[in-house]
Design a protein around this nucleic acid. Structure first.
Length: 314
DNA sequence: CCCCAGTCCTGCGGGC
DNA sequence: TGCCCGCAGGACTGGG
């Protein structure tokens, strides 16, 4: 389930490949159906071999290697994909091995248990067309409250479903949508067009706060253990979840009600009926005002543990 | 245009 | 104990 925090953690983890040259690439086929790789392996090897990696960026939930020729190599993990420098959780599901030369890591690996992910090499023009020109909304870490409201405020969709729309805002998935709405004190089934300006601000503040905290803890590793960072280590944010996967447990905020589970758009949604009433509450708005202040104040001093993050390229 | 249901894929856990 | 079915949710497609 890599969402923005997990993919950002992978991106930071593989930053040491910047400056290395691609010495070769192997597309591995085990007993499973091969993942999507574009172009086909022979053409891929021809285009990437000898190229220097000049940057590691992120676009939504994808890791992007920028090559010196201008091509962008996009790794899209979808449900279970991992971009790794260390040994993978299980060699059987290794899908791609990129051998590197130069000082730094000797190889970069793409692993994917379910094989729903894909790896695509794009020219600069194709990259822009696919990922930068309107098909993907502003990055969730950078979107402003006004942009969020402009892009979703007119929609009749339920707000939790709308937050998953990558064309509106890029990076939020099922887990963090639930966490964000609990912090913002907004019921997941409220329609976007019914939300107040204050509620959109609360959601905006919660988007930034939840995602930054999750990045600080290097993402969420659920009970299936699939998600790992680039060094094959588990994340820590699962210990700080407010509602996700906590059905029937006491709400950590109000301490009185229990977390409920409903299904929206064929996906589980977790929420607390007391903290997220169907109508907005003054208490929720006040809570968010305080939170927004601490979140903004923390941003500059919030250093992840090494390897440290760098500006992403887009 | 907007929105939704169905599809892909594998591992795991519940039920019998 | 072993088997089967349903579920997990990324992005995409086809259709209303």
């Amino acid at each position: 389930m890599p969402e923005l925090p997990e993919v950002e953690t992978m991106r930071r983890g593989v930053l040491p490949v910047v400056g290395c040259r691609v010495a070769g690439v192997e597309v591995l086929r085990g007993t499973h159906k091969p993942i999507g790789v574009w172009p086909r392996p022979a053409a891929l090897a021809r285009r990437v071999t000898g190229q220097r990696i000049v940057d590691v960026g992120r676009v939504g939930k994808r890791v992007v290697l920028a090559l010196e020729c201008g091509d962008r190599w996009v790794f899209e993990p979808r449900m279970t994909g991992l971009v790794l420098l260390a040994a993978p959780p299980n060699w059987e599901h290794l899908r791609l091995r990129v051998r590197l030369s130069g000082r730094g890591p000797k190889e970069l690996l793409y692993w994917d248990r379910r094989g729903l992910g894909l790896v695509r090499l794009c020219s600069a023009a194709e990259f822009a067309r696919r990922y930068l020109s309107g098909t993907l909304g502003p990055d969730a870490l950078e979107i402003t409250d006004d942009q969020l409201r402009e892009r979703l405020g007119g929609s009749r969709r339920e707000v939790k479903v709308a937050l998953l729309d990558q064309a509106a805002v890029a990076g939020i998935g099922n887990l963090y949508a639930a966490e964000i709405l609990h912090l913002a004190a907004v019921h997941p089934q409220r329609r976007c067009c019914e939300l107040t300006l204050g509620q959109w601000r609360a959601i905006g503040a919660a988007v930034r706060h939840v995602l930054q905290e999750a990045i600080r803890y290097e993402g969420s590793t659920l009970s299936d253990g699939t998600y790992r960072n680039a060094l094959n280590e588990a994340g820590g944010y699962q210990n700080h979840h407010r509602v996700y996967d906590r059905e029937g447990q006491t709400c950590v905020h109000c301490g009185r009600d229990t977390v409920r589970r409903i299904v929206q758009a064929q996906r589980s949604t977790f929420f607390c009926p007391t903290c997220q009433p169907r109508r907005g509450s003054a208490a929720g708005a006040a809570k968010i005002a305080a939170l927004a202040a601490t979140s903004a104040g923390r941003r500059k001093s919030d250093k992840p543990r090494p390897p440290t993050g760098k500006t992403k390229s887009r």
